[in-house]
Design a binder for these strands. Structure first.
Length: 266
DNA sequence: ATGACGCATCGAATGCGA
């Protein structure tokens, strides 16, 4: 099965591209971030016609997340239990795992943080701590779990086009990277780094200054798989194609492939 | 240090993203 994440930067603008992408890439699950629309504006029917059930946690103007799935979603949870939040940043759901048992999907639009030392950065730190505490329990309840989305964190220097020039700036600070490592410490693995990857692989490029054309990007969209799922991961790739569209999102999809069998292939 | 680009907000200029 295949699971993907994509920050679409306004689903209103990007819906045609999402439908085109799903037609060309019929993944089982697609997690979206930055819907920038309220639940009543969510294109439920269009996605249903494309074969996807949706769990939605929208918000007007900012944030907003959704999980699209070819099979029914249940036990939908919104935001981080125990961390009161005005902003719609997390949605979780459970589905049947083709190999047996069930699979928990946790889709997050992590806080940007703007600038170290700012109030927004403090919010990012608190949010990350809240996420970690909640995920510990989620992993207990759901051993087969995928945490994915727009993390707004580069895991290490390989994830940045300019790790030296941008050292300790937003998305590059040690504080953020320590939080990323803490998530791995819960029993999660960065699926992308389980495989050999091209150098300078990124998932986001600034709209300005020909960022994409010059490949001045960051890898900040991640897919983390739990220990129970790790043996089943067969590939993790970034699809740069949608970034070449007219009127693209500044992010592009990341996809993970899992074997359908509950035990790894020989 | 600022702006560059795109999206959202009622109607223009500003906030925000990363």
């Amino acid at each position: 099965m295949k699971i993907a994440t994509w920050n679409v930067n306004s689903l209103t603008v990007r819906l045609p591209q999402v439908l085109d992408w799903l037609a060309a890439n019929p993944v089982d699950v697609l997690c979206l971030q930055e819907l920038k629309l309220s639940d009543d504006k969510f294109p439920l029917m269009e996605l249903q016609a494309a074969g996807y059930d949706s769990a939605v946690f929208g918000q007007k103007t900012y944030n907003g997340v959704a999980i699209l799935s070819r099979t029914p979603l249940r036990d939908i949870a919104k935001n981080i239990a125990g961390f009161p939040d005005e902003q719609s940043r997390v949605i979780a759901a459970t589905l049947d795992y083709p190999g047996g048992g069930e699979l928990r999907i946790v889709n997050g639009y992590f806080v940007n943080g703007q600038e170290p030392g700012s109030d927004k950065f403090a919010y990012k730190m608190a949010w990350l701590t809240g996420l970690q505490d909640w995920l510990r329990a989620e992993l207990q309840a759901h051993p087969k779990l995928v945490l994915l989305g727009d993390f707004n964190i580069t895991a290490d220097d390989r994830d940045s086009y300019d790790p030296v020039g941008l050292r300790e700036t937003i998305h590059h600070t040690s504080a953020e990277r320590q939080h990323f490592q803490a998530l791995l410490g819960l029993g999660l693995s960065d699926a992308f780094r389980l495989f050999e990857q091209p150098e300078k692989s990124y998932s986001w490029w600034d709209y300005r200054m020909l960022g994409f054309q010059k490949n001045r990007g960051l890898r900040i969209d991640h897919i983390l798989v739990s220990d129970a799922l790790k043996p089943a991961v067969t590939a993790c790739t970034i699809d740069r194609q949608p970034r070449k569209n007219k009127q693209p999102s500044d992010h592009t999809p990341v996809i993970v492939a899992l074997t359908d069998a509950s035990s790894p292939a020989p």
